[in-house]
Amino acid sequence: MSNLWFLYLFFAALLVFIGLYCLLTMRNLIKLFIAVEVISKGVSLAIVATGAVKNNILLAQSLAITYVVVEVALVATALALIINIYKKNKSLDVRLLSKLKG
């Protein structure tokens, strides 16, 4: 079963790529956060598949569950931020967020 590892990681990398593409190009704040969610789906697929292929499924399962908990905390924080930003400038356009320049 070990040669299936690359197949699962192939799909995980694909998900991460889709998310990154969206993060780099899109403008809607909620869209950007959906992209983060897509990336984290890729990560959790990688964790569980690695465990399954390498006979470590119990350990991988507990890691995946912990990762889901982290995800929820992140989503709550980020969406709270988005709502606050929306309250301030009545828009979700990321281009309005350019007052600060790196």
């Binding site: 990154l20 704040l29 990336i39 890729g42 990560v43 931020l81 606050n84």
Partner: peptide
Amino acid sequence: LEASFKYLMLSVVASAFALL
């Protein structure tokens, strides 16, 4: 808020790569 949102986005991607 703006700074925090940017920080969050970049930092989430960073930790996703570390976790991968």
